[in-house]
Nucleic acid binder design. Structure first.
Lengths: 194, 194
DNA sequence: GGGTCGATACTCGGATCCGACCAATTGGAT
DNA sequence: ATCCAATTGGTCGGATCCGAGTATCGACCC
């Protein structure tokens, strides 16, 4: 009975399950809701993928189509709801995502791996520009935080992802600035006369 | 002449270009080399994807097939080399990857977004286990660093990606531990009687 | 009363991804 | 000699991803 079809690759499926736990919804409404709550900062919500993900969740019986209404001559909308299995899987998935850190491949890491190929000065320039972007990003996160949590518009629990992203941005910034400093101090040896 | 075909989506293509800049190579050798240098920590190197990526780079004329030898009755191997355009694009890509931080969607962020759905105690448990994994991961990174840099087997420049990953892991660990502490201190309000 | 703009709602096809499989060869143990 | 395991080198097909397109409706505007 456990219907243990494989977990969807796309985390967007997690968001879909989360939304349907609150109430039945049709795909377009999911996208709209995610964007309203600014959860599109945490999930890459693309129309095409959304419909694929919903279809695949239905195949797995984690969600099921409820009704398909039509307003005027517009495309009909199909409303989905979670199933009991879907609710179980949502919690299990969430739990595992938190428990065990996934191996990730951020693009910056791949770039760093070849930093030497860029030459000392160009590398310094590029890193400096990055630092600027990171500062801006951190400022935005702090502002968003203040507007929501400090202003009491929502409890901190619902801004944890912003908090986490902020800490990570700060850490990256610190590292980038350290590398720039080391380049300047001549502490970071570069190959040949690059 | 600039042949400005779109940049491959897969960062593995960057690694391929980087390798071919050193010397011509056939795909299997690329995979082997990347693994020897432990660059498979930075790039997700999957056989299937590798051959796709190589084909797509060839279509774009960033690399070109050199010769296709055959030893005995084994599958013939096709050796590729970079083109002038490939070299240009490699540097430009690298530069941009460093200059402008990409929007990324780590799985942990999506999980955090629904942490509230997990209940206070289960969340605490899961986070605690994660902290353990992160500590182990950080220890490994530190050990790898020592074995290579401190032992003088390679200059620091070639271990920057390990250094960066370590700093990020440490930052994540600090945050996770903070959240656990806040849960324990009752500072992090949870919805209803969860 | 035609025009454009922005929601609403979804489809489609081409590109990409990648695990699983195939097939020959070498290198030791048995 | 023989057989198994590992290495070499690569193909294939099914799943997934997602940008671009389609088509309707309501509002507002001169």
């Amino acid at each position: 009975m456990s219907m243990d079809s494989k977990r969807p690759a796309n985390p967007l499926a997690l968001a879909v399950l989360g939304l349907l736990l609150e109430q039945p919804m049709h795909p377009h409404a999911m996208a709209a809701t995610l964007r309203e709550r600014e959860l599109d900062r945490a999930f890459k919500v693309t129309t095409g993928s959304l419909y694929d993900v919903v279809r695949s969740l239905e195949r797995a019986d984690w969600i099921s189509a409820r009704e398909t209404t039509q307003v005027g001559g517009r495309p009909q909308r199909t409303v989905y709801a979670h199933t009991a299995e879907g609710r179980r899987q949502f919690v299990a998935w969430l739990d595992e995502l938190i428990r065990v850190p996934a191996k990730e491949y951020p693009k910056f890491i791949s770039a760093i791996s070849y930093l030497g190929a860029l030459g000392r000065q160009p590398a310094r320039d590029a890193l400096t520009e990055r630092a600027g972007h990171l500062i801006a990003r951190a400022d935005q996160a702090r502002a968003a935080w203040r507007e929501v949590v400090d202003a009491g518009r929502a409890p901190r629990l619902f801004m944890l992802e912003v908090e986490y992203a902020l800490r990570m941005t700060e850490a990256e910034l610190a590292w980038v600035e350290q590398i720039i400093a080391d380049i300047d101090a001549g502490v970071l040896a570069w190959p040949d006369a690059a």
